[in-house]
Design a protein around this nucleic acid. Sequence first.
DNA 1: TTAATTTGTTAGATAAGCCTAACAATTATA
DNA 2: TATAATTGTTAGGCTTATCTAACAAATTAA
Lengths: 228, 228
Amino acid sequence: MLSFTEENYLKSLFQLTVETALKEEAGTNELAAHLGVKPATANDMLKKLKEKKLIKYEKYGKSSLTKEGKKIAIDVIRKHRLWETFLFEKLEFSWDEVHEVAEQLEHIQSKKLIDKLDKLLNYPVSDPHGDPIPNAKGEMMILHQQTLAEESVGHQCKMTGVKDNSSAFLKYVDQLGLAINKTIKVLARHEYDDLIEIEVNGKRISVSPKFAENIFIFCTACKKKTNR
Amino acid sequence: MLSFTEENYLKSLFQLTVETALKEEAGTNELAAHLGVKPATANDMLKKLKEKKLIKYEKYGKSSLTKEGKKIAIDVIRKHRLWETFLFEKLEFSWDEVHEVAEQLEHIQSKKLIDKLDKLLNYPVSDPHGDPIPNAKGEMMILHQQTLAEESVGHQCKMTGVKDNSSAFLKYVDQLGLAINKTIKVLARHEYDDLIEIEVNGKRISVSPKFAENIFIFCTACKKKTNR
DNA sequence: TTAATTTGTTAGATAAGCCTAACAATTATA
DNA sequence: TATAATTGTTAGGCTTATCTAACAAATTAA
């Protein structure tokens, strides 16, 4: 049985590597920053998790999950996202409120609880932020190929999720009338100040590149294939 | 913000004193036994909780909750019993499975979560074991005046709850066809071996005094007033 | 009322998870 | 390539919650 802390290290490592799919390993400082601890603290834990065969780690090297470590990380993420979905669907939480509580709920140990929760929610495949929910076997869809920042002018797309899960960002998204499954059309990119002009709900709005980078979209026109 | 452990000490102290209503204070060894720790450990925590003004404690004396400590204890119990009710009502858990998971869930911190859960469950007043659920203000019904062991021969009563919440006992109750709200008639008490013969579901069964002491009942004939 | 038993306390250890400060290795840059 | 900047490690400390062993107080029984 792992501690909450150990589970959080595995989850962070997963999120920094496999989930983003851009790399296989993460550095000690990077991991420490993601978890909000000092590098020295993370270093101790890396040795401990290596000892438990949950991660691969060599002194002065980067770290990655073993098969067993990945399995646990995915399980924690499954729990986190199922709880978020439950809070949103059944308990009237808004999408910017669910994360904080799910951070606590994700560590509850009970296979039956999670499987029944999954059933109650009718086996959802994505959470309120559009992130994929692994199934009971640990399999998960990989979505999120493209961000709004990368979309071409003139193209129309659908919002599929968000990269930044902070409450502040999510509230801002709400304010602008954006939401998962909304249709977005990219009207223009302004060279002068880099703002992107889009159409949502029949209205024209401008968003910053920073904002656009945090909005995941799916563009049918683009026909990009989903890998894995 | 209290630790899980601190919350558990307050809850135990509440259960050993106020809830049973038989006494106001509990001893160090008694509390330690209830929590499954050594007296030395409990002793340290008692000093700490006194420091935080959550309990009254003097060296070599017994301990009791302060107003603030009691408030926290009741809040933890409210969460525990609401979660038990949720697991039972919404997630198809049996009454002997809910306690273990609720022990974990009772420490989740989110007022909104609990209030919404309460609403989802339609503001239940008792949990699957018949124990009263404190409301959002910390008010709770006091039930459980009498046990089956005390009921007179010839009287008819209704089962209202159980004193022993162990999985083993609860399964045994199930097996015998007993359940909350079942009507029980006391047919006889056998002097020879102290067994109590009762009628439930139109069938005659015999139960031990130990068993009967753990079944709470309400006897209309008796008309005992509920205190507090 | 003394002695035995029970109950409660203290001191000293341990493990987990965190920290700071100092140092070492690696990588980037001038 | 030498040096500066970044990244990672080690050593030593702190807190929380636990333990054991030894001891002290309170209660019960002879």
